[in-house]
Design a protein around this nucleic acid. Structure first.
Lengths: 253, 253
DNA sequence: CTGCCGCGTTGCGCTTTGTGCAACGCCCAT
DNA sequence: ATGGGCGTTGCACAAAGCGCAACGCGGCAG
């Protein structure tokens, strides 16, 4: 809607691919060099862009800072974290927390079996939305038409022979998940990894996040993992309770 | 320089503090609501901003994607990674890679003793610049006046009794580090953690990154850790060699 | 040593673009 | 019912961002 801002923002993904000099930026934006210069300068002032010694531009540190900060201010994440840790202590496996946002599913927290590590490494990268157990839960809760529309336009990469192959199968799976209130991924993403997941709901009953426990086949079989389901669901419900018990309006300071 | 972009970018840090509604954004920007709306819309189209169910805006997933992508495209990181892994295999301790950028030091890679994990959790957060061994190396290489100016304006938090207390001590430490070509942090950040670090240099001899090995006191004493210094330096030199051997211009595709 | 080329940079006149205003519609709370 | 708060829209005005052309600088080649 705003041309200038639009152009400026378009620079960022472009630089994400790698450093570029003024001319390259101007060309790829389809604007005059002087225009690109002004935009880059503005981005620079805000620290979104950095000028390395060879004069080329690359993305700046401010971007990381923002991503980091945004992450830490997610309410659900904050509330859920201690629960995830406790679940991890109880079962020993990797625990994930994920949210849905505009056609993507993001991991926003992780507790690994060894010790707590936020798996930022996954953030931003498209999660395997067609197979991940948490993704199924999040998508299963979308309104009918939105769910259908999304299913149609997704890609269905066959990570393994058990990956969801097409929109029809996916929608069927989502219906099932919606019905039963939990989800699994049995080797659909990586042959030897199984997951069980449960939804976290807000006060209105809508699914606001999903959590899962993952373990490799060699440690526990899919069936054994399923015995953890009650525990996972209980944890998810505890988080749901705490989340929806919150005061709905929370001031921004 | 560009008012519109300037305003739009100012929205992002503001939202990083927490979700905000249109009125709040407009107020804090000092612009009319309709203006704020247009800016937010543009940000939204680019996925930098997300509208949650209560209509309030928060930072969007695209931000994470960008931070992630930028990270992965850092040349040094790519080149260094296998070396870090090998060093980790040899000594078993945690290995870090860090760069300096506009008054901050960022970790850009990590190999933990257990298994490889990118410590993105640290990214964006200010590294303990006054005590970290890698920070000393990176700052020691700055031009005299810049180094001095930076040292003056830094804070000197006393993480432990061995933390660098003030600018004078810091500049002395940097001079020493500059001289000897390596650095340590002996319990300056956390009482029981020691690090040894070595610089990675570009073709022109400037320090482009620094790497370190960290281990808790209980595993190896500071003195024992120092015996690893030759290995660390050799690794750093190997990375330097490979890095500066590169073709200087690298096309952006 | 000198002249050329490529690059980033600057100042400027034109007009597109972003701006603030005021009015509207919606929802919630009274 | 009714009022207030909020997001949203259309519009007229002028500010702002735009591309152009010219400049300065450094590196490379003749």
């Amino acid at each position: 809607m705003s041309q200038t801002v639009d152009r400026a923002l378009s620079i960022l993904p472009l630089l994400a691919e790698g450093p570029a000099d003024l001319g390259q930026v101007a060309d790829r934006l389809g604007v005059h060099k002087s225009t690109a210069l002004r935009l880059l300068r503005t981005l620079h002032e805000h620290g979104f862009v950095y000028r390395q010694s060879d004069q080329r531009y690359r993305l700046g540190a401010r971007l990381f800072a923002l991503a980091q900060e945004a992450m830490e201010n997610l309410d659900i994440r904050e509330i859920a974290h201690p629960h995830l840790v406790r679940l991890n202590e109880q079962c020993g496996h990797t625990v994930h927390l994920a949210v849905y946002e505009e056609n993507e599913v993001l991991y926003i927290d992780k507790v690994d079996s060894r010790y707590p590590v936020r798996m930022y490494s996954r953030i931003g990268k498209p999660v395997a939305i067609t197979v991940a157990a948490v993704a199924k839960l999040l998508l299963a809760d979308l309104p009918e038409h939105e769910r259908r529309a999304l299913a149609e336009k997704l890609d269905y990469p066959m990570y393994t022979s058990r990956s969801t192959p097409n929109p029809e199968a996916f929608l069927r799976e989502l219906a099932k998940v919606r019905e039963q209130g939990w989800a699994t991924d049995l080797g659909g993403h990586e042959e030897s990894i199984n997951c069980v997941a449960a939804p976290i709901r807000g006060a209105d009953g809508r699914v606001v996040a999903a959590m899962s426990v993952s373990a490799p086949n060699v440690v526990v079989t899919g069936d054994e993992l399923l015995t953890l389901l009650p525990l996972v669901r209980r944890t998810a419900d505890a988080i749901s309770g705490e989340y929806s018990g919150r005061t709905p309006t929370k001031d921004v300071v």
